[in-house]
Design a protein around this nucleic acid. Structure first.
Length: 200
DNA sequence: CATTTGATGTTCT
DNA sequence: GAACATCAAATGC
């Protein structure tokens, strides 16, 4: 069942923007307290530690929070946003280069009942998992998973059969107005035909 | 419908 | 003390 797991070599490539593009359509899986959930990634954003003012690690600043991003690609970077929401990122590139891809929206495909329970609702709609704070709650991802390897069996990503040739929209990232010029970079990607995205 | 506001914790000034 | 990669509920048309 785990044979389609994405290898570390994928995460350690240099071009974080290209990785963000390729992640759309792949399958994000979690297994927490014995409960497995899985969802197709529909929306991502790229953050580049060296040149991008929107990145927490811009300009090479290292803090205890961002230290995870400086690890070699293939681990989870999870941090708390606005004191409430856990945001899930995938660390990329080699050790010392702090790049990451934020997962902003997914479409649930396995473990729907568990997801409904975690979200405290009984309605299946994009409100369930479209939005960076929503999908982490739905899949059970919290800051305690910060630094977790993506080739182990609590969080991982698999290739899914239909992840080629999905029409993508490239546009500007959300909520990064403070980043000046870098706020205009077209580093947000989402599946054009999917309803499971955070906003158009 | 659109817009505003309260919740809430970690980081940095 | 301010800012922050957000969400949901409340308020204003």
């Amino acid at each position: 069942m785990y044979r389609n797991k994405i290898p570390l070599s994928f995460y350690r490539q240099d071009d974080v923007v290209q990785i963000a593009r390729e992640l759309v359509g792949m399958k994000l899986c979690t297994k927490i307290n014995g409960e497995t959930t899985a969802a197709i990634i529909t929306e991502t954003e790229a953050y580049c530690g060296r040149s991008d003012k929107a990145c927490h690690a811009s300009g090479g600043t290292r803090t205890s929070r961002t230290e995870t991003m400086y690890q070699a690609g293939g681990v989870a970077y999870v941090y708390l946003c606005y004191g409430i929401h856990h945001l899930f990122n995938i660390v990329t590139n080699v050790e010392g280069k702090a790049d990451a891809v934020l997962i902003r929206a997914v479409k649930p495909i396995e473990g729907i009942e568990v997801i409904l329970e975690r979200r405290e609702t009984d309605k299946i709609s994009p409100l369930l998992t479209a939005g960076p704070g929503r999908l982490t709650q739905a899949l059970g991802i919290t800051t305690s998973m910060d630094g977790t390897s993506l080739i182990k069996n609590s969080i991982w990503i698999e290739k899914s059969p239909h992840d080629e040739d999905i029409p993508l929209i490239a546009t500007t990232r959300v909520g990064v107005d403070y980043a000046g010029e870098d706020a205009h970079l077209p580093w947000r990607f989402y599946a054009k035909e999917s309803k499971w995205v955070s906003q158009k």
